[in-house]
Structure formats: structure tokens, C-alpha cells
Design a protein around this nucleic acid. Sequence first.
DNA 1: CGCTCGATTGCTCAGATGAGCAAGATTCCG
DNA 2: CGGAATCTTGCTCATCTGAGCAATCGAGCG
Lengths: 321, 321
Amino acid sequence: MERTRVIDTDELLSIRAAELYYEENKTQDEIGTLLRLTRWKVGRLLAQAKASGFIRIEIVHPRARRLSVERRLREATGLTDAIVVSSAGVATDEELQSRTAQAAADYLTGLRPVPRTLGISWGRTLHEVALHLKQGWAHGVNVVQINGGVSLNRRAGTAAATAVNIAHKGAGAATLLPSPAILERLETKQAIESDRAVAAVLNLATAASAYLFSAGQADENSALVDSGYLTAPQVAELVRKGAVGDIVGRYIDSNGNIVDPELDGRTVGIQLEQLRQAKMAIAVIAGGSKHAIARAIVGSGLCTVLVTDEDTALAILGDEA
Amino acid sequence: MERTRVIDTDELLSIRAAELYYEENKTQDEIGTLLRLTRWKVGRLLAQAKASGFIRIEIVHPRARRLSVERRLREATGLTDAIVVSSAGVATDEELQSRTAQAAADYLTGLRPVPRTLGISWGRTLHEVALHLKQGWAHGVNVVQINGGVSLNRRAGTAAATAVNIAHKGAGAATLLPSPAILERLETKQAIESDRAVAAVLNLATAASAYLFSAGQADENSALVDSGYLTAPQVAELVRKGAVGDIVGRYIDSNGNIVDPELDGRTVGIQLEQLRQAKMAIAVIAGGSKHAIARAIVGSGLCTVLVTDEDTALAILGDEA
DNA sequence: CGCTCGATTGCTCAGATGAGCAAGATTCCG
DNA sequence: CGGAATCTTGCTCATCTGAGCAATCGAGCG
């Protein structure tokens, strides 16, 4: 049963007018004749219908963006830029991921000035961004990994492939970070970081002119669990301590703070501070399970540009429908 | 993963243009400047986007109708008139029923010439139509029941109440059909029909200037089962014989033919032929479970006017999304 | 190479539309 | 009941937009 509400005569008229205008594309004048109104009244009814939100216009296309949401995001959060892809007519989280990755690729391609050195993380999302980039998207970009790579499981090499792919398509070279993501002992981590080869890459990463990264949710499906760096119970413990997800391998809470300093100490890669101080840090985050981490990242200034889907954007803005 | 398809440069541009036009309401001229196109090109891109169906405009309001679907229905079926309410943003079948009943009430109210005698059936739907009619919707309509009434269960009187309500609000009188819907023995049915009081009502019903009725689906939730005239197994047997639902108490198959002549012989009310020959026969049918019966009714010419919801209308037209 | 045919582009012009304004209607008080 | 304040209405005018047309471009082909 619909909520009982007094419906103003004008409201009904405005709906009739809207039907004739938008469905039958009649002119306001014709509608005026039909409804026995002046054409100005019809124009006003139509304006009223729009203002009351009765007219919903959706752009249904995989490449469609939501400019109004982007603007609101920029204004509400102080992001330099926000790219929000439409969720209209999307069934699966996978499709959302794909659309968002496409949009990130488009954004990178259109970026001016083109970054000389691009620091990237790795993961399913970035891998897909790499796939969507077109050959020749840039003319000589150096790509450098900013956190330790996947290497413990059968998917060894995807992190490297992502970096190489992005660099190759942009007519540049990739510099890989030859290190695990998380080490078991602090001493090992310190040793590896002081190794000349690793230290050089980290220096390069610190000096990157732009960063591109995604984020992982804090649950048993995390890429870090999948890669064998953490176990499901360890992640559960992190969640208990307030973790909402990870960014460049580091788990943060909803305020953007490191959840477990000891674990963080054993994690190889640039520091979150470096992202916070970067001129350009592009986060690419999509899917319903990443609302919390997206919010934490944007809220704590970990990125300057966010590429995401409409639902995540609305979650950040706090407009639950 | 979205279907891989070559996306024409113009297609992408048309999406960008549409975003700026519909979301940011910029003029085509402004968009031209932004996208480095002439304003004519922008106009053409926008037209292309519309034509390709990328722009979806919905009117979101409980009273919204789908004029384009109505037109298609009229053209495809030869109905005199079709009223289709929008399903946009509707969660429940109940809401759909309510909207459709509202629309039927609106249709009746706007009907010219106002019928002198209106023959009606009874049921949940018609009851709701009666509720939605406004006091004074007509100035003197005589209402007559066209089929035997509910009387076996605790809801005794709702059929009568519906008729009285419609008549009362239309400043007229109701004539009730003092008979059960279905009798157990043929002889009893013949006897009751030849009774002067009943015969007089049936004559009046036959001469009605317009009919208003709903339909029931053929399953254990049917009003006839609920009222105790039939049992669930009996209905199951009817379904086995091809029944898709009932109209004025008579079960029909998908071609609009009586399914069980013996049962039909024991059913009191006007004949289906009388509906088929009527100048105006308004069917009010809503909800997912009534697609089949709606199709049968429209397909076999049992109504001249159909009031229904968008999904049912599309089912009749055979456009499954 | 030059020609033809179809597609695309830029344009003119008329029709459609929104902003702003003044006259008229309505409400709200005292 | 009167008069002020507000809202609504009809209108002018400037702008926006779509239809239709001629010029241009480009592919295909002899």
C-alpha cells in the first residue's frame, strides 16, 4: 500500500505533463492545448516535476560517469579530482570493477602533464587498469612498484606483469621492487630494505611524480591472505582492532591510522605519509565490500584523486538511499 | 566482465555530451566549447545517444503512466483504450495493485459519456477501485452486479459493499445479485436463475452500458477458493485442463475459452459472450501472477479497455526484458 | 588519376523554451 | 472589512534547439 499523502492537483498535472513531454515528445504548447493550460503553466509544471525529483534521467552505458556526484565528492572532501562511474544497470561487482578500471585507465591517459615516474601498487584492480590502458597511452612513463610483491603463490608474477604492462604500453620502463610484501621477522625486513637494490627502488618510489594504487577490504578474501602473507585468523584479529582494509599492504582503521604497528614494521614499501604528501595520489576502488576502506582513505587524505563507482561514492558522501 | 565490443569514438563522445547536458545542464553550445566540437555536432551526438537508448528518462511517481506502452498495446491488440501505470520503483505487488486501482478509478471518473448502468464484478481489486473513487465521481450511476457474490466466508458482504460504495460515491443506486457464485448442482443454479428477483438483476446486468471487472489467477490463492466455492485440488485440476484464471467467476484457458463447461454451467452471472459484445468492458488487472490471465482476456477480446501495470502490459506485448 | 555517390559538416531559419517582469489573484492579519 | 504581503498568471524577449539544405569530404571504382 502506498503511503497516503495529499497529492496536490498541480502535482498530478505535472506528472501528466511530464508523460506527454518526455514519453510522447509533444511540445509544451501542444500539452497546453491538451490539458487546457497555457504553455507557460506547462513549462512551470515541468520545472516543478524536475525539481521534485519525479523526472529521473539516467545515462545507461558502461562508460557513463556521474558528474554531479563527482562534483559533490570534490566539494565535500577536498579531493583534487573525483571520477565516479555510473552503477546504472550493473548486476555484478565484477562489472563495477571493470567499469571503474576502465575509467581509471581513461583518467591516466588524459592526465596532463604526464607523470614522469608513476608509483604503483598491485592487485586485481590495478591489473585490470593495466589491461584497459591502450598501447601508446603515454610516451615514456617510468613505472616503479611502491610495495612488496605477490610471490608466495601460483599467481607469482602478476604484480610484476601489471607494472611491466603499464610501462610497456606507455613506452617506458618498469622498476620492480624485489621484495616480499610482509616479512616474518623485523630484522629480515630491515636487512632487505638496506640492501642496495631494494633501497634504490624505494628511493625512486619516494620520488615518484604520481602514485596509482587500489585498496583491499579487511576480510578473508583479501589479496594478502590469498597470497599467503596473512592468515584468515590474523585478518580477523586486525578487524577486531579496527582495520577496515589495506592500502599498499598496510592495514588502516576508519581514521586512516595504522592498526598494528608491529605488523606494519614488517611491511615493505613506501610509508602512508608519502602518499599523504604526494602531489598526486590516485586511488582506484570499486565494489560494495570496499565502501569502508574507501571512506577511510578519502577521509584521511591518503589520495588526491579517487576513481570509484557510484555506490561507493554515495557511501563516502553518507547518502544512503 | 562487460561484453567486449568496439566502442565507436562518437559513441563515447555522445556519452560525455549527455553527461554534460543532462547532469550538468549545460547548453549544447557550452558543451561544444568544452569538447571542441561545433554545437551542431553536439546536437547530433545527443540525438544519437537518445536513439541508441543510452538516455533513459523515467517518471517516478505513483500516479505515473506509460503512454508509450499504452499506445503500443492499443495498436497491437485493438483495445479501445489502455491505461498502463508505471512500475518504476515499485517494490511489492500490493503497491502495484493499489496504483492500478487508482488509475482505474481515475479512468472511470474521466469517462464520457458517463455510463448509465455499470455492471461490476467483485474481488480485492474492485474493492480497491471503489476505495479510490472520490465522492461525486459521477452524478447518478446505477451499479449492478454481474456475477454471484461472495457469501460463504467471514468476508461476506464485501462484494455487496463494493457495489454499494461505487454507486453511493457516484450518487446512484446499487442492484445486488442475490445468488452464490457457483452452485453445487445444475438444477439449483437453473432454479435460482429463473427466480424472478435473480432474473431481473441478470436482465439489468445484460443491458448495462459498461462493465467493470477484474480477474483472478488460477491457483490456490484465488478468491473463489478463499470464498469456499472451490477447493485447492479442484483448481489444480482446472489448471491441468489449461485454466489460466477466472473472469466473472468463469475459468478460461489461454485462448479465452471456458475450461470446464460443467462447472461453468453451475456458475451464476452474465455470459462471457456478453462481455465480448459489450460496447465498453473495462478490465482491471495487476500483479505478476496475473500475466497469463490478462493475456488471455485481451487476446480473446473479453475487454475493450484494459487498466494494468507496466509489467503485465509488457508481458501481453511479449517484450520480456 | 578523376569521377561518382554517400556520409559528414556547417549553416540558415523557424519553432520551442526559460528568465524575468508586471498585472492580477489570494491569503493573512489587524 | 481593508490593505499589505505573497503567490500565481500571462506575457515579452533573448536564447536554445532541431529540421532541412548546400558545401565538403572521403571511399570506392573504372
